[in-house]
Nucleic acid binder design. Structure first.
Lengths: 337, 337
DNA sequence: CTGAAAGCGCTTACAG
DNA sequence: CTGAAAGCGCTTACAG
């Protein structure tokens, strides 16, 4: 493998001159530059990433801290990962995977070993233990998701509250006065997924404002349990004819159960939901919905992180909530009164 | 941040002595070692990963090359990624994500910049363009999946042929003499997913051996198309009462369609399938099946790669096919004759 | 067993 | 605009 010294010799210049054309931080005579570039091409030279990192004190790598080991229903996770890698690459950053069960420990180790320049934390929970080491070390980081307290760290997430309002309004606009709200099991609320809470609270508030009566059903986890809960909720003769869903397992099972009960959408039931586009695609879900947008959220998060890396003394940390987009799929009919 | 020089000074020894206790490659007097370790603890010192990499000429990072951008139906991909990262960590390797659409280019760049010590290639296709640069550079690598020709590179994959045989035998053992074989759309065969071919050919051969008549149905892509194809295949009055499935989209849709047609398993239909455990879990599939095992395959692949890194002049490249495990779920009934 | 020196492949002030 | 020198933080022969 050719080194910068080989290139310098081949071009008949000093190593520092080669470095100057490599980094582009200095002005070099076009003629000299051409000689250097010819030598680079001839020797098929590439900069040694690690050596440059040592000299510049920047690894040009981002650490991606992702919790995999808590069984989460997340076919969308891969989408986030690749979106983050793509966004990072646009800024010439690589992505190092930090998947240890002990995320906090992984962070401390990676920071101490100077393996990365900054961190992206995925699937944040309410009191996320990974935030501690970041605050302690003051290491640059961005959160994708929302903890109880961002503690001065930039955070990006979908605006679940706005999503809830959009969906409630959509039902209310169609004239519905009552709806069954199928939400997450209690464990999800308790385990600190703030999206569950943010959606629910906003849905309740907006429903009150729009005088829509919400019948809240917390569906248990597990396919069989979901099926049973759904059948129970839908089979009641007094059940509202509108469904507001925020629960991936439930919305995935919904077409099957509705069909089993001989119910059709939107004739028998109006349905709106918030779920990931990935889930909708895999299950071919035919419902008007607000879709979480991993690509947009990931790109925004990386952009914010890189900007902060470039200007460390920039403005205070920001929390960015991405406005949800409603995708209409004709699953809502006017209420019959 | 403390450096090795700070530690040496604090402990009153030379830098090389600190390095000796760090690497453990030399014998150090217990007393000296204790002094060094105390200094390390006091200064909260960690080895700079990049500096060590430069000195040792080993990054201790594996590059994970994954094709994301060809829309693949793969909720299991995240499982592979984390399994690879976990396996790598057991050998003290980190994982750098290489997700560029141009995988071959990404490989050349990463190798040239010496960013990684070896490569893991995921979702291999028949004539995978990423194999070229690996053969050219002779860089250590392992394939997860099976190309047409491994070209002297280690490869690990599930034994799809054995999986097919196990499932065919399972039906034959129950007395079935004919079965409908629901396989992938033609595009999948043509796009070089060798698993499709390997399964099909073995299923055909084993069925012939067991005198099981196989009615091969290649199901088109797309949720609606799958549904239609399934209904057509199952609604025929002359349709065999046994189903052999190798197609994720089809098996995911199967419970719904069977239900729509008022058919039950195993009373009306015996069903066996090969699909990922992840898919089975998400869709709660109740079928006896051979499940692809991302964790086992990934771990094996990384182990093989690391061994080759340790002993570069080891034996010739090996192709390892992981034996499939049959998970029985009582979806097969004896044939009625 | 310990230490002084050279080297890994770069970049970056600093002279000229 | 170009070059010689020092330095990034380690490891590794090589003396002693």
């Amino acid at each position: 493998m050719a080194t910068i010294a080989d290139v310098a010799q081949e071009a008949g210049v000093a190593r520092s001159t080669v470095s100057a054309v490599l980094t582009g931080r200095k002005v070099v005579l076009p003629e000299t530059r051409a000689r250097v570039e010819a030598a680079i091409a001839k020797l098929d030279y590439s900069v040694d990433h690690g050596a440059r990192a040592l000299a510049t004190r920047r690894t040009m790598n981002l650490g991606l801290v992702v919790r995999f080991h808590e069984a989460e229903f997340s076919p969308a996770l891969a989408t986030y990962i690749v979106a983050i890698a793509d966004a990072a690459r646009e800024h010439d950053y690589g992505v190092l995977l930090l998947t240890q069960p002990d995320g906090a420990g992984a962070i401390r180790a990676a920071v101490a070993a100077r393996q990365v320049d900054a961190l992206v934390l995925l699937n944040i929970i309410q009191d996320d233990p990974r935030i501690g080491p970041i605050v302690d070390t003051g290491f640059p980081a961005v959160l994708i998701g929302m903890p109880r307290d961002t503690q001065g760290i930039d955070a990006v997430d979908l605006d679940f509250a706005a999503g809830a309002r959009v969906l409630v309004d959509h039902l209310a606009d169609a004239g519905h006065r009552e709806a069954t709200f199928l939400t997450w099991p209690d464990e999800v609320f308790q385990s600190g997924r703030t999206y569950a809470e943010r959606f629910r609270d906003a849905a309740v508030a907006e429903a009150a404002r729009r005088r829509l009566v919400l019948d809240i059903v917390s569906c248990p986890a597990g396919p069989e349990q979901v099926r049973d809960a759904l059948r129970t909720a839908l089979a009641r003769s007094t059940a509202p004819r509108a469904l507001l869903v925020h629960n991936d397992a439930v919305v995935a099972m919904l077409p099957t159960v509705l069909h089993e009960l001989g119910l059709s959408v939107p004739d028998d039931y109006s349905v709106v939901s918030l779920h990931s586009a990935e889930l909708g695609r895999i299950f071919a879900l035919p419902y008007t919905s607000v879709e979480s947008e991993p690509e947009r959220v990931s790109k925004l998060a990386v952009d914010i992180l890189v900007r902060r890396l470039t200007a460390p003394d920039g403005p205070a940390a920001v929390t960015t909530l991405v406005a949800p987009r409603l995708v209409e799929r004709a699953s809502v009919a006017p209420a019959v009164s």
